[in-house]
């Protein structure tokens, strides 16, 4: 029982950065722009936010700094892919390289400097940690708490609002959207910036909310997991939350099994989240669901293609 409580309590901490990044990618890809750059955007977010705190800023302001810095890199990606119609797959990889490289160069003096980050609920409200509920709630932070609401709002906006519909139309059929008076490029650029914002926030969460320290490479492939989760979620924000929770719970389980001395092949166990994701994709396909992939994802729209 104790084991279960501890495990459940920590899962949101694993899932939150994955959810934030996937949400950003979903918005971007729903507008038809394939974004593989999450790892680089998150790296920039993590480093910038950490530097902001180290320069004496409030951790909450630091989150905004991280998000803004990642948006700047996303803007470069947007200029390349939306304005200049460069190849999206490769531009995404270039963003990863630039993000990882830049953080290595700029962040060098700030490695391993511990700082005070975002407090968890237990600290804010001086919660009792003796009860089951107390133990679960105390280790959460305000960001994880706000996450379900964020996901709900984003889902509503994307699937139910007029502007969300417009964004999806751009990703499904830009020619039709164009005819209907939507400025395709402005929408796509906005979507790319949104992905920068949310991926930056995800990265900032890693440094400012979870580990309270920055080191080079600390995103450690979580951006790639987010890329995979988007496909897993069939480009739906609500399912991204579920996917991240599944992935996070599998990930959180491995060290906890070690801590009780379970006799398991650890590295093979660590493949489970990946295999599980693949399995769910296959099951989804067998049960006849469409992949949900935006029809125009990764393709290049020109007004001349309208007719």
């Amino acid at each position: 029982m104790d084991f279960l409580i501890g495990w459940i309590a920590i899962i949101p901490n694993y899932a939150t950065p994955l959810v934030l990044a996937s949400l950003g990618l979903i918005i971007c890809e729903r507008a038809g722009i394939l974004n593989l750059g999450a790892e680089g955007l998150m790296a920039v977010g993590a480093m910038s936010a950490a530097i902001a705190v180290l320069f004496g800023n409030d951790p909450w302001a630091a989150l905004a700094v991280g998000a803004t810095a990642a948006m700047a890199l996303a803007f470069l990606f947007g200029v390349a892919t939306v304005v200049l119609r460069a190849d999206q797959t490769l531009s995404g990889l270039a963003v990863v390289a630039i993000g990882l490289g830049l953080t290595g160069v700029v962040g060098r003096p700030y490695v391993q400097k511990t700082f005070v980050g975002i407090p968890n609920l237990g600290d804010i409200f001086a919660l009792e940690r003796d009860t089951t509920l107390g133990r679960i709630v105390a280790v959460q932070d305000p960001i994880t708490l706000a996450l379900p609401v964020t996901v709900g709002l984003l889902w509503w906006w994307l699937m139910r609002s007029r502007s969300g519909l417009r964004l999806r139309a751009v990703g499904e059929n830009p020619a039709a959207a164009d005819v209907a008076g939507v400025d395709v490029q402005i929408v796509q650029l906005g979507a790319v910036l949104a992905s920068g914002l949310l991926c930056g926030l995800a990265g900032a969460y890693l440094s400012v909310a979870t580990s309270h320290v920055w080191v080079e490479g600390m995103v450690a492939s979580r951006g790639w997991v987010a890329v995979a989760l988007v496909i897993f979620a069939r480009w739906n924000p609500a399912r991204a939350l579920v996917g991240a929770l599944v992935f996070g719970s599998a990930d959180a389980l491995v060290p906890r099994l070690q801590a009780v001395g379970a006799d398991i092949p650890v590295y093979l166990m660590m493949t489970l989240p990946y295999l599980l994701t693949l399995l769910v994709l296959v099951i989804g396909s067998i049960s006849g669901r469409r992949s949900g992939e935006p029809a125009f994802l990764g393709r290049i729209y020109l007004r001349q293609d309208k007719h």
Binding site: D2, I5, G6, A220, P255, R256, A259, Y267
Partner: peptide, 25 residues
């Protein structure tokens, strides 16, 4: 003594999470 490997030399996020797993014991 509870001992846990993070299986990484370099992942402060995971180290914090693993620390919590040990404290929970």
């Amino acid at each position: 003594t509870v001992a846990v490997f993070t299986n990484s030399w370099w992942d402060p996020v995971k180290e914090g999470q693993v620390a919590q797993a040990i404290l929970d014991q």
